[in-house]
Computed example of a mutant assay.
Amino acid sequence: MMNFDDHRLTAVGLLTEVHGGLLARLQPVLSGAGLSEIDFETVIRLARSPGQRLRMSDLAAQTELSTSGVTRVVDRLEREGLVTRQACPSDRRASYAVLTEAGRARLESVLPQHVQDIEDWFTGLLGAEELEGFLATLRKIRDVVRPCATAGANGATEATGAQAVACAAEAAMRPRS
């Protein structure tokens, strides 16, 4: 007989509740700036990447979007002037999504309140040691369940062999969008 009080079910349930609750608290500020959750995730990832750019394939891997999904997001952000595309000089098949000055300005307008909301509803609820341990734990889990979450973040243009295999497997599990 199944134990419905299993700590593993509790852990995933709490994580789901926290994630949903945080999104609900953080979304009004993003919406007020005209950014959806995926728009914000895209521009903040670009802003935090070397040269404020990522290969489209790395951006897809980091955001868990399909390649067509990330193309649609970048198309929309490009129409709004927040992102532009640049051809990859070493690979004609690849292109980069690059944060524009307007994209940076939009982020700078929303980040002070967004960071304050994160402090109020998340990081500020934990002591310094708790937060450090929690972040280490999240990274440990993230590296197993989303090995591509940092694809291209170190400025490398190609994934390592092991990361490429893991990213391909992860991409195959993604729903088509």
Rank of each mutant, 00 (worst) to 15 (best):
G103Y: 07
L99W: 04
T137E: 10
C148R: 00
V110W: 09
A128F: 10
W121L: 00
A105M: 09
F122P: 00
F122V: 08
T137Q: 04
T100V: 05
D120V: 06
T137Y: 05
R106V: 10
L135I: 11
V110S: 08
W121M: 01
I118D: 04
L126H: 12
E132Q: 14
A128M: 09
E119P: 04
R104M: 11
E130A: 14
R106C: 11
L126C: 08
A149Y: 06
E108F: 13
R104E: 14
E101V: 07
P112W: 00
E130C: 07
A136D: 03
T100I: 12
E119M: 11
R146P: 04
A105P: 07
G103R: 04
L135N: 09
E119H: 11
S109A: 14
E119Q: 09
E101L: 05
D117S: 08
V98W: 03
A149E: 09
P147E: 01
A136Y: 03
V115W: 05
L125R: 08
E108W: 12
D117C: 08
S109C: 07
I118M: 11
V115C: 07
L131Q: 08
V145E: 10
V115Q: 05
A105N: 10
A128N: 09
A149K: 01
I141M: 12
L111C: 08
G133N: 05
E130R: 05
V98L: 00
T100Y: 05
A105G: 00
R104H: 14
L138Q: 10
S109R: 15
E119A: 14
P147T: 01
P147G: 10
V110F: 06
L135K: 07
A102E: 15
R106H: 09
D117W: 09
R142P: 07
A97G: 14
E101I: 04
R106K: 10
V144F: 07
Y96W: 15
A102V: 10
R142Q: 12
Y96K: 11
I141S: 15
V144K: 15
L131C: 05
F134R: 03
C148F: 00
V145Q: 05
V144S: 14
A105D: 02
T100R: 01
A102S: 15
R139P: 04
L99P: 02
L111R: 13
I118W: 08
A149M: 04
I141L: 15
Q116E: 15
Y96T: 11
L125M: 07
Y96I: 13
E132K: 15
A136R: 02
R104C: 10
L131I: 10
V110Q: 12
L125F: 07
D120T: 10
I118P: 00
P147C: 02
F134H: 05
L107D: 05
L107G: 01
F122T: 06
E101W: 01
L138D: 09
A128R: 15
V115Y: 03
L138E: 14
A105E: 06
L126T: 08
A128V: 12
L125Y: 02
Y96R: 12
R106T: 13
T100L: 03
R142D: 15
P147F: 09
T137D: 04
